[in-house]
Design a protein around this nucleic acid. Structure first.
Lengths: 370, 370
DNA sequence: CGTATGACTGCAAGCGATTGTATGCAAGCG
DNA sequence: CGCTTGCATACAATCGCTTGCAGTCATACG
């Protein structure tokens, strides 16, 4: 790293070197702007970062500086800024699994919202492994992100959440399943949503309803519980064989369907814990020669892109992704200085909306199939 | 920002304050480690950043320092490091449109590869607008990313590419359509791939083949050209009405299909420029009561997740995403110091692989539909 | 036994920006 | 006309870390 060690010698003859500009990088620095305008760095700094300063600046000077800065193409160095403890305008995002089709929309919302606030997003991909998430968090923190968003349930490793709780930056978890009270969480009303789905199915005449999803991720746990609770309220039987374990992938859904259809008394409707699962369910059903929804109804959750272009288009629950991300952002970077703003709810819960499409219908043999 | 201005007074009585640790943040600094070990910062720095230094360090000292550093949980501050011109270990990624289902896999590959190299990824979402991409680039550069990856065709705004060419960090474009020679590009052999698809269809007996995709994105332009070239080679007629314009969304594909099927002589096979388009095509065909592939064959491009769980599973071209990203990474951050390594090919082209599934078959009325 | 070589370390000067405090100057007041 | 005020700037100290160069012993050589 052959960096010229001393560049800014006061020039033996006394003349100040014009505008040296860090020779190595070619990027104009604050000092260059100061020199070019014949004012001090402090003045330039105060003007450019127009922070609420007690010190007044002459309008003329401000003009001049602003002009030179633009002319030189000056850009503040975020590194130096961050060093002094100023905000880095970086938002860390730890994503459970970017491969999951429900995340792109979330990421899109996050980057858009963040940009709107002048923030950049540093992406960390946990690849489903909580171990990596811990490490990621460390990285993000050391990068001095102003806030960190946890996207998806990363709670299977308790250490993470605990560590995060002790951190100095705001950390907000989205779709984490509302189990943690240590950190703010923004969630969807899973119980309410599943209840809505079940009621939709029940209204259609279904009684033998299965639920597919692995009780591991926070959101899915809640959904499963809501499913059981509904059955109980109705006084319907809870059959363990109606709740097969399934990894959250298309294949998981496919296997689950085959399992369910091999049962002596197969369900007439299946609630998928996610759209991915539901699409797998539908696909496997079709492969088996079953008709959806004539032979079996299927519902999903998330309304991922593509959920409406499968055949039949999927009935599912749509979450207000944008609003949720916005809420998280407000909690995370909304309060200017001190930690969280006590005035805002740090555990908001949003309602999902039932999108009825063609994958649900009356159970087989129920008179008029519409 | 009430930051205690002077902290490290030599303590009147001569005792060195234990380990002050930046009170504001609570994060141990290099100085803390130095004090705790009773050595100078320089020594600690040299040890921890084990840079190839001409200056030798006693093994015992090294041990001691390493041990204390670990005990204190010391983490170097990337900001301060970057300020000195060291690598920031940040990789900028500008994504054309994260909403496009083919990108998640790419992002996944990028984050994984980057992590493997010790890099973090800063994500920029261009939202399809090239104007934003320019701005993004500026941001990423000012963040001192060690390299920048352009994901997807951002070339519709020429300024971007020009600006980028003059930058000092390595910039590599992936899936940019191989039109730019100003910056390194990693591409898939679109012409070869489309030729493969066309041959597959021709071998099945199709002669009336349509192509759906908007000639705007680099990759798609190439694919369209290859389509025409194939027709020409065979001496088949190029019908403009067989090349409808279609936005790269499910809906675009659906509209295109309806358009094609309203033709007096509709095609028996349709090549979708992307899987998204293809899925839209299939969906619309099914809606129209057409059977795929009995009535019309459809092919896609990308093999996005989900392409195999629609009905019928999509015949498509799969790209070696991982290998392509790896190649880009090698170009971008492979050479340690000076720009690009002249030894490596900066315009590698990868071959896509035909994945035959069930959306293609012989044209209607061709004897045995197997 | 004095003094060269080395092997190790410490000093201190920045990187680029922020910010508390001091300074220069022109009005304003009595 | 001297001095208080207040406005506009400049100074200088840091943030945490890297690094060229100077300094310190200890050992080895003449």
């Amino acid at each position: 790293m052959a960096r010229p060690s001393r560049q800014v010698h006061p020039s033996p003859d006394g003349t100040t070197p014009a505008a040296s500009t860090n020779v190595a990088t070619g990027v104009p620095t604050l000092r260059d702007v100061a020199r070019a305008t014949s004012v001090s760095q402090s003045t330039v700094s105060r003007i450019l970062s127009d922070a609420p300063t007690a010190i007044p600046i002459a309008a003329a000077t401000r003009e001049r500086v602003l002009e030179t800065a633009k002319r030189l193409g000056y850009r503040p160095n975020p590194l130096a800024r961050g060093l002094m403890g100023a905000r880095t305008m970086l938002l860390g995002a730890v994503i459970r699994d970017i491969t999951d089709p429900s995340f792109p929309a979330i990421i899109e919302a996050v980057t858009t919202e963040a940009t709107g606030h002048g923030y950049n997003v540093v992406l960390g991909h946990a690849q489903g492994k909580a171990g990596e998430a811990v490490e990621l968090w460390a990285i993000l923190e050391s990068r001095h992100c102003d806030a960190i968003l946890l996207l998806g349930d990363l709670s299977n490793q308790p250490t993470l959440i605990e560590d995060l709780a002790g951190t100095r930056e705001p950390v907000v978890a989205l779709w984490h399943g509302s189990r943690s009270t240590v950190i703010p969480t923004v969630n969807v009303n899973n119980r309410g949503a599943i209840t809505t789905v079940m009621e939709h199915l029940a209204a259609l005449g279904h009684q033998r309803i299965a639920f597919v999803g692995r009780r591991q991720l926070g959101d899915i746990v809640e959904r499963a519980e809501a499913y059981e609770a509904f059955l109980e309220r109705r006084g319907w039987q809870i059959r363990p064989e109606y709740m097969p374990d399934a990894v959250n992938e298309y294949e998981g859904g496919m296997e689950a369907l085959h399992h369910l259809m091999r049962l002596d008394e197969p369900p007439t409707a299946i609630v998928g814990a996610t759209d991915v699962l539901a699409i797998g369910l539908v696909h496997a059903a079709l492969q088996r020669g079953l008709r959806v929804p004539a032979d079996v109804s299927v519902t999903g959750f998330d309304d991922i892109p593509g959920a409406h272009v499968i055949m039949p288009p999927l009935t599912t629950m749509r979450m207000p992704v944008r609003a949720m991300v916005k809420a998280a952002m407000d909690i995370a970077i909304g309060s200017p200085d001190r930690g969280f703003d006590p005035a805002v709810d740090v555990h908001p819960v949003f309602e999902a909306e039932l999108v009825i499409r063609d994958s649900t219908g009356p159970p087989p043999g129920s008179g008029n199939p519409t």
